[in-house]
Write a protein that binds this DNA or RNA. Structure first.
Lengths: 165, 165
DNA sequence: CTCAATGCAAATCATTTGCACACCC
DNA sequence: GGGTGTGCAAATGATTTGCATTGAG
């Protein structure tokens, strides 16, 4: 179980390598789909992969405004849509109107516990989900392309709450 | 596994009883919270419990407009919020901007398969989910108040697709 | 009667769209 | 150069809000 930390490899070199791979993935995708390799797209991808949490469009937008880099919201929306198709980000709706995103290439197949006390998001992975998926796929003759599972939870105050983990 | 059918008991008497119980639930909730028992609230509740599918606000609104009953959208939003707190409806976001709802008192604990071909919604229930929940509750010392699980799937065209079920 | 609920319309907020311009190919 | 991607602002669409009016308690 990880908490807001996706590149568990310590050190910046690991991050650089990760970024490199992801950029290549994007290049690959753009070439396959005959789309242009614009600086905005790579900048957005890079920025996203620096973020270890879940973020929304506005967060990204403000990030770029802080730095010298100029990107419009429309472009951010477009690019995230593109990265979504490329499988490089994941989109969440969390019951809110506003969508949340997270990078996805290096942390596939995980689900989320939303802590209702402080809206902390905890990631987890449980193989039983895959089993359930597989069972339904064969039982119903369907292909499950993706899934989302959210647990909405609160800290247990009744017991001695050992600082969790 | 049920498909868009929640009061599996056949016959209308069963439905009437169901409605009765749900209305009492609402009354109970309103009294507990010192809220008024307006006709709109009961009308909306009743309408919702006649619906065996997932619906959105606009669907409800048009339903009332068709009949002679006058309810504003603001009231529908307010009332659904209230019914949500009362545990009498469930809200979904399905990755869309627009929220979907469904009645909830008589069909607790089920999850959804969203068919991407035709956006049909299939409900299912798998005890393993509860197990996973319980495991996390004890392991992390939290209380999981609720959860949402969606499988996004497509019909398998490759194999001989026996008309599912 | 009083105050919470309703109805209506205007406001808000996330997201989408249209169009002129820029720049990747 | 040509056409796609970007930036901006306006449009859209779901939801929320403000306020006058209504009606439940």
């Amino acid at each position: 179980m990880t908490r807001h930390s996706n590149h568990s490899n310590p050190g910046f070199k690991a991050f650089e390598q990760e970024l490199e791979v992801v950029k290549n993935k994007l290049t690959e995708f753009l070439e396959e789909h005959n789309q242009r390799k614009t600086p905005e797209r790579y900048a957005i991808l890079e920025e996203i992969y620096k973020i270890d949490e879940h973020f929304d469009i506005d967060f990204l937008y403000k990030l770029f405004k802080q730095r010298q880099f100029q990107v419009s919201k429309a472009t951010i929306y477009n690019t995230l849509e593109l990265l979504l198709e490329a499988g490089l980000v994941r989109k969440h709706q969390f019951g809110k109107i506003q969508a949340f995103y997270e990078k996805s290439f290096f942390n596939k197949n995980h689900d989320h516990i939303i802590m209702l006390d402080d809206f902390q998001i905890i990631e987890f992975c449980d193989p039983r989900i895959e089993q359930i998926k597989n069972d339904f796929e064969t039982a119903m003759d369907i292909e499950i392309e993706s899934h989302t599972l959210y647990f909405y939870a609160r800290k247990n105050k009744s017991k001695k709450s050992s600082k969790n983990k």
